[in-house]
């Protein structure tokens, strides 16, 4: 009986002590927690982006980002240890530093994604430049521009989830579908259109296949001849 009572009382003494200590450090814990919330946000983005982008960017491309992530994790782990043991309850500075490193890693990852995403978008933009005046393209110019803008936005920021990545991929596919009618242009036509866009087209470029393609589908209205 007495042993249980004494043991129980001792536990209460320890708990009360912990509570008192915690109360006196609540401010420190609060700033630590605030900083942690920021770091958590960064960590979430970093972790998610790294995970989503890992396969697209390839191992070699993603490795430097992962290395940075490990460093961030190690710092966070050290901070936790100090906090948990009570040696330092105010970890905001350390965590802020760690947060910057996490942001840097995230930025690095974003740049790497941007390279990848731009590479994916570039052919479509080139094609769009050739056909943008064609009547069949001009009819859905607004949707195409909006789609391109959305894709550009996703290029600037790495996807945080598979859904975002799928959305990115879907938008690229949609853009391709919309340019599909011109996407299969014969080479002579493609060359003619290139010269037209660059203001270098001559009558010589109006070859029969080109004339035939122009006359199809009321496309001739899209062209005019002017002096140099």
């Amino acid at each position: 009986m007495i042993t249980a009572l004494l043991s129980d009382t001792r536990a209460k003494i320890v708990l009360a002590k912990r509570l008192k200590d915690a109360q006196s450090e609540v401010k420190a814990i609060e700033v630590t927690l605030t900083e942690l919330e920021k770091l958590l946000d960064a960590a979430r983005q970093l972790a998610a982006a790294a995970e989503v982008c890992r396969d697209r960017l390839g191992a070699e491309m993603i490795a430097p980002v992962l290395a940075q992530t490990v460093a961030v994790a190690q710092e966070a782990q050290a901070s936790r240890k100090r906090f948990a043991e009570g040696t330092s309850r105010r970890e905001n500075l350390a965590l802020s530093n760690t947060g910057r490193k996490a942001q840097a890693a995230l930025k690095d990852l974003g740049e790497r994604w941007q390279l990848y995403a731009q590479g994916q978008l570039a052919p479509y933009l080139e094609l769009l430049r050739l056909v943008t005046y064609l009547p069949e393209v001009a009819a859905s110019e607004h949707e195409i521009k909006q789609l391109v803008a959305q894709i550009r936005a996703q290029v600037t920021k790495p996807p945080q989830s598979a859904a975002q990545l799928a959305q990115f991929d879907g938008r690229l596919t949609e853009l391709g579908r919309r340019l599909e009618s011109v996407a299969r242009l014969p080479d002579e036509v493609r060359s003619f259109l290139m010269n037209v866009v660059e203001g270098r087209a001559t009558l010589a470029d109006l070859t029969p296949p080109v004339r035939s393609w122009v006359e199809e589908g009321n496309r001739a209205t899209a062209f005019s001849i002017k002096f140099v």
Binding site: E37, L39, L40, R80, F83, A84
Partner: peptide, 11 residues
């Protein structure tokens, strides 16, 4: 939070 972060970061 610490643990969540560490988990996210694969610690």
């Amino acid at each position: 939070r610490y643990d969540e972060i560490l988990d996210l970061l694969g610690a």
